[in-house]
Design a protein around this nucleic acid. Structure first.
Lengths: 127, 127
DNA sequence: ATGTAAAGTGATAATTGTTATCAGTTTTGG
DNA sequence: CCAAAACTGATAACAATTATCACTTTACAT
């Protein structure tokens, strides 16, 4: 994989964002910063970085995919009210890979956990 | 929700299938059995049944959604070789909801776990 | 430095899974 | 049996993502 200026700014934009942005969102941010980048380039590079493990692709949330520069093993929570995505630490499911491999005999290369519910902020607002 | 013949055969087709079919797959099976059903009807009814909890929608696998008539809480494993989807029992992640709620203060309404890897059958073939 | 092959880009067309629309049909309860 | 609500098939529309392609950059051997 060769170096590319575009890939670099895409990664930086991803890493600087506290949120877990979608491809479109990153594209909009870069457009505002008057970069002449193409949406296709954003998709291309996010996918490329995801498939080589440099970033993480979060699928199965709504309709769009989101990306995460945090490659530590962790999970995600999406608020059904505000749509915000939160990180959940892996300790909530200890030894889940070992247990599943032992039980099934399958080889597990990766796993994803997504929680749906209402976040604290939205719970406070509800009252 | 009114009765409909189409919904009934869609549910039967889903329940009779060991696999976790997609909407398209169910549509093909019904077409072969010379039903004049429409693809839109298949989608409509799968989604309707999913949202009332009669069946389960499995999202975030590849690009298409899959459906499961097994509504017991359980997880899924998708084989990266053959694409087959297997059920994983919930015991691999005990108390995951309670732990996550305690840790975050969020309210969790649902959660999904998807494993990716190689199933036993494909592992045997590899040798 | 320079030439060349491989990799990357922007612009946009194409694809794909899914949903919306709508005129006509079926179901339901009084 | 009748009206209102729900449902259907056919197909258009949609939205996210990917493919295409002519052109530009990058890497690196000479």
């Amino acid at each position: 994989m060769n170096y590319s200026k575009q890939r670099e700014i895409i990664y930086k934009t991803l890493a600087d964002n506290v949120v877990h942005p979608s491809a479109e969102y990153i594209y909009e941010i870069l457009k505002e910063a008057d970069s002449k980048i193409s949406l296709a380039t954003v998709y291309r590079n996010l996918n490329k970085m995801a498939s080589c493990g440099h970033i993480k692709k979060i699928e199965g949330l709504e309709d769009r995919a989101h990306f995460d520069h945090n490659t530590f093993e962790h999970y995600h929570f999406i608020c059904q009210k505000c749509g915000k995505i939160y990180d959940i630490e892996k300790e909530v499911a200890p030894e889940i890979v070992k247990k599943t491999q032992d039980k099934t005999g399958f080889t597990i290369n990766s796993h994803d956990i997504v929680f749906h519910g209402i976040c604290l902020e939205c719970k406070k607002k509800e009252r």
